[in-house]
Amino acid sequence: MKLIYVIVRNVDSGRVTDALNKNGFYVTKLASTGGFLREGNTTLMIGTEEEKVDEVIDLVKKECGPRQQIVSNPVGPAEFSSMQVMVNVGGAIIFVTDVDRFERI
Rank of each mutant, 00 (worst) to 15 (best):
R104E: 10
E79K: 11
A19R: 02
V99F: 10
N73F: 09
V89A: 13
G14K: 06
I94N: 02
G40A: 13
S81A: 13
R9T: 08
K22M: 11
D100P: 07
A78R: 08
S32L: 10
P74S: 09
K2H: 12
I7R: 04
S32Y: 10
P77E: 07
T28Q: 02
N10K: 11
V96A: 01
R67V: 00
C64P: 00
D18Y: 02
I93H: 12
K61S: 04
G35Q: 03
V89D: 09
F80G: 06
V85H: 06
V6C: 01
M86K: 14
K2E: 03
G24K: 04
V53C: 02
V8A: 02
M83T: 13
L37T: 05
N21D: 09
M86G: 14
D18W: 04
V60Q: 00
G47L: 09
E103I: 15
D98Q: 15
V71M: 07
F102R: 14
S32M: 10
F80N: 05
M1E: 05
E39H: 09
V60T: 01
K62C: 01
G24Q: 03
K62N: 05
E103K: 14
I46V: 10
E50L: 14
G76Q: 03
T97P: 11
A31L: 15
G14E: 08
I46Q: 03
V85W: 03
K52N: 08
I70L: 13
K62L: 01
L59S: 05
S32F: 11
F95L: 10
L37I: 09
L44I: 05
D54S: 12
T97Q: 13
V53Y: 02
P77D: 06
D54R: 14
G91F: 01
I46A: 00
T42L: 04
T17M: 00
D18T: 15
N73E: 06
N88G: 15
T43F: 07
N41C: 05
D12M: 02
T97I: 12
F95M: 11
T33L: 10
Q68V: 09
A78P: 10
V96S: 03
N41A: 05
V71C: 06
A31I: 15
I94L: 03
T97L: 13
E63L: 00
E63F: 00
R9V: 10
D18V: 15
E79I: 15
G40D: 06
R67F: 03
L3V: 14
K52W: 12
V87H: 06
M86Q: 15
E79S: 12
V99T: 10
D12G: 00
V11T: 08
F95G: 07
G76L: 09
G40W: 06
I105F: 08
L44F: 02
E79N: 09
V56N: 02
